[in-house]
Design a protein around this nucleic acid. Structure first.
Lengths: 132, 132
DNA sequence: CTTATTGCAAAACGTTTGCAGGTTT
DNA sequence: AAACCTGCAAACGTTTTGCAATAAG
């Protein structure tokens, strides 16, 4: 894979916007530092970065994909109130136990909690962004 | 909610095609019994059936939604070889343990295994359908 | 008679792709 | 010079929507 200004910019955005940005959000922020950048290029680079293992893709049902700079395996919590996605540290031992006895060969495991984040569940000071 | 022939037909297809069909698959099968049925109607009815709690939606990252007649909570295994989705019985106690200590109020939990089903992992007699 | 539901077609949405020109090695 | 990467715009596959017509209560 060759160096490109655009790809490194996309990588940098995933790292600085640490809150699981979507391709569109990454594009909007990157545009400020690289006018003329195209959304297609952002998508293409996100795909190569995911394939290269430098970025993780986070899929929430019914929503555009998000991208995560945290590489080690973890789960996610999608807050239906503020729309934010939080990392979830899950005991890998328990996950392995959950899987034990299941037939087949597993290569990945997606665990997504749907509900309210801590802030929204306290019903005060709801986070700014609106849920889609 | 009013009775409609189309909605009951969609419901019936989800129940008889027990293998997590997509909207398109449900449409193709239902068409045989109700010529003139439209795909938009299938989507609308699947949405109302999910909302009414008579059907479950199963989302696999990067794939069209599937629909499940099994209502009690369970996980899913998506086989990257044959493309099939299998139900996964997961110990609810372990799932509750996984969640314990996490902040927030959880309303749903999506657990999806990605890998090979038992049949494909035995590397013999792969299931008919091709992975997308 | 009222209103939910339908078929149809068009649009919305997130994402991918073909192409001609520009960049990296 | 060869290969890769870009911007652009068009196309993609899935899903939703506006509409006038139909069917249910």
């Amino acid at each position: 894979m060759r160096y490109s200004k655009q790809r490194e910019l996309v990588m940098q955005q995933v790292e600085t916007l640490r809150d699981h940005p979507t391709a569109e959000e990454i594009y909007q922020h990157a545009l400020k530092e690289c006018p003329g950048l195209s959304l297609g290029t952002v998508y293409r680079n996100l795909n190569s970065l995911v394939e290269a293992g430098r970025v993780r893709r986070v899929s929430i049902p019914g929503q555009p994909d998000r991208f995560d700079h945290t590489l080690p395996w973890h789960g996610h919590l999608y807050c239906t109130c503020c729309g934010q996605v939080e990392d979830l540290d899950l005991d890998p031992g328990l996950v392995r136990q959950l899987l034990s006895g299941q037939p087949g060969r597993i290569t990945d495991c997606v665990v997504t909690w749907i509900g309210l984040c801590e802030r929204c569940s306290r019903q005060s000071e709801p986070a700014p962004a609106a849920a889609p």
